[in-house]
Design a protein around this nucleic acid. Structure first.
Length: 345
DNA sequence: AATTCTCTCAACCGCACTTAC
DNA sequence: TGTAAGTGCGGTTGAGAGAAT
C-alpha cells in the first residue's frame, strides 16, 4: 500500500508558525469537543490548516499537560538509558517522561546530549566507548589471549573446568574494566592490579609477561581484593542470566588453541584469539548499551555489527521490566542507574 | 553598530502501520 | 482479502535568536 496523500495538501492550507488566534481556535475546539478525527477537525474548528498540522500543534505544544523548560539531570539519565535500550524510538522514550513530547526529546538529544556523549568519548548511537576508549577492554582480552597462547594457565587447564586464581583474576579484571568504562564513578577503584602495560591495537603475543602483575601481589590476593571491593555485587553470578547471550563459536573466531603453533600465517593470534570454554557466553549487546548496532566483543578490535538486534532488544526490555528478576546482571545495571549512584553525565 | 556564524526548536515531509469498510 | 483513509513516527528543514567577529 502506498502512502496516502496528506490531507488537504494541495488546497492552499496555511503552513508555518502558528498564530495566537489559531492556537486559541484549536484549543477552544478541542476543549469543547475533544479530538478524534484530525482530518475533519480543521474545518470544524474553523482553521485553514492540515489535520496533521493541527495534531502536531496540539500534541507538541498546546496540550495542557506539556512540561516545558530545561531537562533535569534525572530526565537526562532516563533518556540516555532508554535510548541505549530502545534507540531512536522517541515516542517510546517520551512515554517514560511525563509531559515531554517525542519531538522535544528528539531535539534535545540531537542538540545537547549527542554532543555531551561525544565529548565523553561515547558513541551516541551505540552507547559504547569509541575506538580509543575500547583499548582497556582490548588490553585485558589481549592479555587473556597472550596468557593462553603462552601457556600461562598451566597445562591447558582452562579447558577441563578447573579454574586457576590467575584466570579468575583476569576474568574479573575484564569485567571490572568494562564497568569502569560504562560508569567510572560507580565502580570501586582498584589499585592492587596494574596489569595493562600499554595500549596496543595489535597485541604482541610473543611477550608473555605483559599481564604479570607489576606490583608483585599474588593473583589470589588481587582476586580477593577485587571481589571484596564489589561486596555483594558479585553475589549470585551464574551463567545464562543475561538475555541475549550468545555462544561464541570457536570455529567462527578463526581461533587457535593453546599449545598449537603461534606463528602460522592466517592463524589469527592477534586479538581475536581463542576463548576458553568458561568465556564462551558473552552478552551479545554489552552490559548496558543495547542498540540496533551491537558490539562485536567476540572479536576484539573489530566492529562487528549485528543486523538481528530487535530480538535482543525485546529480550532486554523484558529482562529489565521483570521486577522479579534477581539476576546478578541486574545488579550491574542497577549499579549504573541514577537511583543508586550518579552517572558521569 | 553591522554583519556573519552558530544554535535551537517548532513545524513539515514522507513513509509505515493500523483501522475500517 | 484488498484497498483507502487515518494516524503515528522519525528524519529533516528553516526561521529566529543569540553569540562572535
Amino acid at each position: 500500500m502506498g502512502r496516502s496523500p496528506c490531507c488537504d495538501q494541495d488546497k492552499g492550507v496555511k503552513k508555518g508558525p502558528w498564530m495566537q488566534e489559531e492556537d486559541d481556535k484549536l484549543t477552544a475546539y478541542i476543549n469543547e469537543n475533544g479530538y478524534g478525527n484530525w482530518r475533519s477537525l480543521p474545518k470544524l474548528a474553523g482553521l485553514n490548516r492540515c489535520g496533521k498540522s493541527c495534531r502536531l500543534r496540539w500534541m507538541n505544544y498546546l496540550r495542557p499537560d506539556i512540561r516545558r523548560g530545561k531537562f533535569s539531570d534525572e530526565e537526562e539519565s532516563t533518556i540516555i538509558r532508554l535510548h541505549a535500550l530502545l534507540g531512536n524510538k522517541w515516542s517510546k522514550i517520551a512515554g517514560h517522561l511525563p509531559g515531554r513530547t517525542d519531538n522535544e526529546i528528539k531535539n534535545y538529544w540531537n542538540t545537547h546530549m549527542r554532543k555531551k556523549l561525544l565529548q565523553m568519548g561515547i558513541d551516541p548511537m551505540t552507547h559504547e566507548p569509541r575506538t580509543n576508549e575500547l583499548s582497556p577492554i582490548l588490553d585485558v582480552s589481549q592479555m587473556l589471549v597472550a596468557a593462553i597462547n603462552n601457556g600461562q594457565f598451566g597445562n591447558n587447564n582452562l579447558f577441563n573446568n578447573s579454574t586457576t586464581a590467575l584466570e579468575d583474576l583476569l576474568k574479573l579484571q575484564l569485567i571490572h574494566k568494562m564497568l569502569q568504562i560504562i560508569s567510572p564513578k560507580a565502580v570501586p577503584n582498584i589499585n592492587s592490579f596494574n596489569t595493562a602495560t600499554s595500549v596496543n591495537p595489535k597485541p604482541d603475543t610473543t611477550v608473555p609477561h605483559v599481564f604479570i602483575n607489576q606490583s608483585g601481589i599474588t593473583p589470589e590476593a588481587a582476586t580477593s581484593d577485587l571481589i571484596s571491593s564489589y561486596d555483594n555485587v558479585w553475589d549470585g553470578i551464574e551463567d545464562n542470566q543475561l538475555p541475549g547471550l550468545v555462544t561464541v563459536s570457536q570455529d567462527g573466531l578463526n581461533a587457535s588453541k593453546p599449545g598449537t603453533s603461534t606463528t602460522t600465517e592466517g592463524n589469527d593470534q592477534t586479538g581475536a584469539g581463542y576463548y576458553p570454554d568458561q568465556l564462551h557466553k558473552i552478552p551479545s549487546s554489552g552490559l548496558v548499551s543495547v542498540s540496533p548496532v551491537t558490539s562485536g566483543l567476540n572479536h576484539p578490535g573489530t566492529a562487528q555489527h549485528s543486523s538481528a538486534g530487535s530480538d535482543v532488544l525485546e529480550d532486554w526490555g523484558k529482562f529489565l521490566d521483570d521486577e522479579t528478576s534477581d539476576s546478578c546482571w541486574k545488579s550491574f545495571l542497577d549499579l549504573t542507574s541514577p537511583t543508586s549512584s550518579p552517572l558521569p553525565w
